[in-house]
Design a protein around this nucleic acid. Structure first.
Lengths: 197, 197
DNA sequence: GTCTATAGGGAGATAGAC
DNA sequence: GTCTATCTCCCTATAGAC
């Protein structure tokens, strides 16, 4: 890994954190360069415009998620373990630095970010959504997950809860997100006949 | 209603819309003044700083919600009708202009807005939350609403879903929010014994 | 690749005339 | 109350030396 890649990745790390904490309009090139001990122009060398930087952050996140998703396959195809890994990852990421869900950032700033970033965001959304639906379908077939109605509907509810609770947790405290995730688990893991007691 | 009140309200209307569409850092005094045919300085006369403006928006929203909540009492104390009115209001507001939920705005920008605005946001959060819990408690007693576990937990889930789905709908289309609200209704209105079929 | 220097613009905000 | 004029600051972005 040469210097170029190194600095570039450091910039992306920092910018990703800033974006997830303060939103697209809430951070500047200075916020990135100063802590890294470099100059504004150096950031512009790697990412000519802020739009380029924003797109790169989302793209890298997509790649990471794709790799992680492949990694989940080590759970022998168990939908429940796959889901557990995702929920753990999501909860850990949220609690460590009180960041928003990436989809939360993109949808909150949706009408004020560059078109190129919106497009990248749509791709991320479709991938996360597809992954969730697939886990729900497989999980139901396996008898590991329980829910009524369409997998698509359940996926919408889960995405909404996760993104919404993670955002609310920034104001109300992390208990809110913990409660929401716990409740999601209960709904999915407990069989209806027992639940209806 | 004199001119002062009139202009002040017009500014608040415009700023509220802008805030809910683009977030706190996504709009400027110019964005407010130009469409209203006034000058930047006129806005500063009514709201010296942007923090003042932000606080005023949230405070007015709190007042509106309080008044609306009192209005809901006309439903003869029925928790279900009260909830229906709120969901209709929420859905209508979201679809008309693809705005975020007010709590969505405040939590997304939480770490980059003035402290005074955060405080006002916390008050709004507590009021919405308290209202939801109360409706759930009363509704369960009345036998109109059905859910397992603590009212507090269900309230967390509902707030998260509503805020999250409304934000996702900006990217994915309003169907997502419609689906989420429909599912919320189904969960609350259908009795468990039937649901577990 | 990273620097210094700087352009060019828009932001929030204030002073003082009307 | 609203205006014109202006201030100061910070933003994104670029040019050119090293």
């Amino acid at each position: 890994m040469n210097n170029r890649t190194d600095t570039r990745e450091r910039i992306l790390d920092s910018a990703e954190q800033l974006l997830a904490t303060r939103g697209y309009h809430g951070f500047s090139y200075q916020d990135i360069s100063r802590p890294l001990g470099i100059k504004n122009a150096a950031v512009h060398y790697h990412f000519p415009t802020k739009a380029d930087l924003g797109v790169a952050i989302v793209r890298r996140y997509r790649d990471m998620l794709k790799a992680a998703s492949d990694g989940f396959m080590k759970f022998g195809g168990s939908a429940r373990l796959h889901l557990e890994a995702y929920l753990d990852f999501f909860m850990k990421e949220a609690c460590e630095n009180q960041t928003m869900c990436p989809m939360g950032v993109l949808t909150a700033d949706y009408f004020s970010i560059p078109e190129s970033m919106r497009e990248e965001g749509s791709k991320l959304e479709q991938e996360v959504f597809a992954m969730l639906i697939r886990v729900l379908e497989v999980g139901r077939e396996q008898g590991e997950l329980h829910f009524e109605g369409e997998p698509r509907t359940k996926a919408v509810m889960m995405m909404s809860v996760l993104q919404g609770a993670r955002q609310l947790a920034r104001m109300m405290g992390s208990d809110v997100l913990a409660t929401a995730i716990e409740e999601l688990r209960r709904e999915l893991y407990v069989e209806p006949s027992t639940a209806a007691a």
